[in-house]
Amino acid sequence: MEATVVRTGTEGKTWGGGSKSPLKASYGKMMMWYFITSDALTFSAFLAAYGFSRFKFIDSWPIADEVFNHFPFMHGVDAPMYYVALMTFILIFSSVTMVLAVDAGHQLKKGKVTLYMFLTIIGGAIFVGSQAWEWKNFIKGEYGAVETAGGNIIQFVDREGERVALADVAKVLPEERVEHERKNGLWYVTDENTLTTYSIDEVREGFAESDYLVRTQKLDEKGAKTILSREESLSVINNDAVGVVEGANLTHNEYGPPLFADFFFFITGFHGFHVFTGVIINIIIFFNVIIGTYERRKSYEMVEKVGLYWHFVDLVWVFVFTFFYLV
């Protein structure tokens, strides 16, 4: 009669075909490990592609400390690294609370698991919010820049080498600028962006009257951006400059090569998406803990499995932190 019993092949924690599980891990846990393996390869492919582009533009890549230097409530203060260090700590700490939840689960302490899961979810939510703020600053930009016909970005500095914003360079001219839209006939224009605060003519005019210099993306031996002489600056602005760039998007980027912004959006975005899904999955498991699903099962292994995913998200961030902010 036993032959008629329907079996799914994955009863309980064992695999179909016997009570011995391969590698002494339950089906779910082992498959979570292999999912993490494949996801790790996806992330490393992104980071390796980032490294490829960076080596391609090794002598003109943006300096991370200059790009990411904001801190909440400290407007205009140059604070490189601090904010991202804070984000890193938040994520590492939420990893700690997660592993504490797993540990409490091993001892079947429902109250402790609930508390630690809750703290983990809060930590993850704060991290996603911080990342959104980082994106906002990156997209908005700070000083603005000018793009040359060859697609290079040039920025303005004063005689001391301090960055100068477009607003200080440009001279407001009595000109009328109209944004080209399909409805006024220019349907074939595809890369027309929204109007920048200042036109390239206003920047040119203002620059000619000022005493500022131009800074190119080229890095010198000491890793600083090259500053041109006044004559060279004027020649670049008058002959090569074609457009004004404020902030960053997928095609223009005031910090340097557009590829830098593309990789930033793509890699931190993909990581942020992982954090977001991690928070959602944690919330589901959190409610399962509260209603006592795992208490009845006498096993908190689900907490352990989502814990693996959550630690993996932290692990990826460790690498993103290094390659985007430190190296």
Partner: peptide, 8 residues
């Protein structure tokens, strides 16, 4: 450390 200790 994350893999060995936190992910067991």
């Amino acid at each position: 450390y994350i893999t060995w200790a936190f992910m067991h």
